[in-house]
Design a binder for these strands. Sequence first.
RNA 1: GGCCUCAUAGUUCAACGGAUAGAAUAGAAGUUUCCUAAACUUUAGAUCCAGGUUCGAUUCCUGGUGAGGCUACCA
Length: 614
Amino acid sequence: MHLRNPEDMNIQDVLTIKVKEVVASAYGVDLPTVEFQPTRKDFEGDITAVIFPMLRYIKGNPEQIGKTIGEYLQDQIEEIAGFNVIKGFLNLLLSDTYYIEFFNSIRDSEDYGYFHSDGKEAVMVEYSSPNTNKPLHLGHIRNNLLGYSVAEILRASGKKVYKTQIINDRGIHICKSMLAWQRFGEGETPESSGLKGDKLVGNYYVAFDKAYKEEVDALVASGQPKAEAEKEAPLLLEAQDMLRKWEAGDAAVVSLWETMNKWVYKGFEETYASLGVDFDKLYYESITYLLGKAVVDEGLKKGVFYKKEDGSVWIDLTEEGLDEKIVLRSDGTAVYMTQDIGTALQRVKDFPDIDGMVYTVGNEQDYHFRVLFLILKKLGFSWARHLFHLSYGMVDLPGGKMKSREGTVVDADDLIAEMTQTAAAISEELGKLEDFSEKEKQELYHMIGLGALKYYILKVDPKKRILFDPEESVDFQGNTGPFIQYTYARIQSILRKATSDMGSFNTGHSAGADGRGKGELPVSELHSKEKELLKLLQVYPETVQLAAESYSPAIIANYTYDLVKEFNSFYQQVSILGENEDSVRMFRVQLSGKVGEVIRSAFRLLGIEVPDRM
RNA sequence: GGCCUCAUAGUUCAACGGAUAGAAUAGAAGUUUCCUAAACUUUAGAUCCAGGUUCGAUUCCUGGUGAGGCUACCA
């Protein structure tokens, strides 16, 4: 058998067939599966078949079995250049030709690793979903980066993706900011103060809290019990009154609400733009908070829910090991759960091709989403089988949780600015950008600063909590975003030199007769570093799939790091442009270019940009 | 109390049930007349504890210990 086109059937599938074949003929046994893994670096070989699991079916010495299989494979498959057996591991050596042909097959692909959507499977990814009374902070950054990246990864894995968020724009917390502004604002606006809108509104939320506490303290001082004072402080009562007015549609209150929300949205937009995230559709809680009540009626009819004597509606999940959960209050008003049920339905109504949803929400809401998904399943919606809570750990500071009261909240805009400044300081010290304009420099610093931040957060498994120490700023060296960006820039430098130094030098595409690059092989032998790079390039598409299945940008980040580390080692050991042999030089330039493309592609999945120079 | 996560070098992170547990950083020692030294090379250093399942366990199960979270007719 000859693997003329590795795209059609990957080597592992072919090996599986052949191993089953030899085992059947030599031992008369039908193997259900064959287990493969990449050969560890310390051993000779490229792909390893594990013999141990076969011992359940074949009685015998694993080394002997490995040898029998190895001999057969080497004889039958042209690409197997050799093998060795160590303990129960059959290490197979693939020929250079196999890897060179693989490179030929991907050389002309513009978007290697990207699976195009057939439009059938659409998924909606929700992320960000902030409150409108406070500016975005470090926690939101993790949420945004994760949600955005998972959306991009799902898209690259072949799904149609809609990005959305639900904006928490109603409720008592908003009224608190509004009331404080009325009281103490003296007409301050973002224009008059030069403050970002979200910051301005956030200030009044803090101002409310301060004034409210003073009231409570005064009441306690006059002899009232604390619990009572906290409930009866005039400011709180007034805020509650404002909420009632808002719900009743009071023109003045609604108008103030609209004005202040508009300020906040403008501020958020700036932060989103700076972070480089976007949304296809926005949902507002002020519009969706009443949805879901109709479904409750339906669920009652179906017997999914039941009504208690006081009129409140519940679902009993004790059989699933959970509790009873309320879905409608006794006064008939909606709770959080009701809202989320309604919002989910609305989304499917708006986008009928949705077959699943991803909710990017912190792990403190694990229970809420378990319940929500169970309810939707019980209500019998087909798409409810594909709901996923992208749950992530908190971002903690060395002193514990971020607390606005103690002023330990790490503001998103401030953090981005700091990262940019650090990038600028390092860059200026290195002094490689004298010919850049000020504007170009600023863009680059932003790209690098954000690259450092995003990579720092995304390389960690989402479900783990992150400890963020603002004192020890995010690294720019080692396993970091800038390290990868730097490697990309170096590759671009090689490509520039290759084209300019050699005039008509062909860096890109060869003209295979059928347009698939199956013409002459560029080289006949590989340097070991080249082979390692090709192995890594080969697993990029499956890495994208794996990351999509596990909703984990960390898998992409780690892959990219491995690839870049390998490239740097290659770059150090092997001369690319200095190579005398034309065909080898051209191959190395093309290989470097391909590595660069995959870096750019992988980083795009993480929402990180790459520079041509740095 | 009940339920859910997490626990790996000094620190921050990896490891479909597979070989001698990989990196980065901090530490020690090297590499620029050579494609960008934000780089490369060498070196030392870790699986919370006790059982169990398995040919094989960081990974799965049970029980501890430690950290965090949830446990509202709040969102």
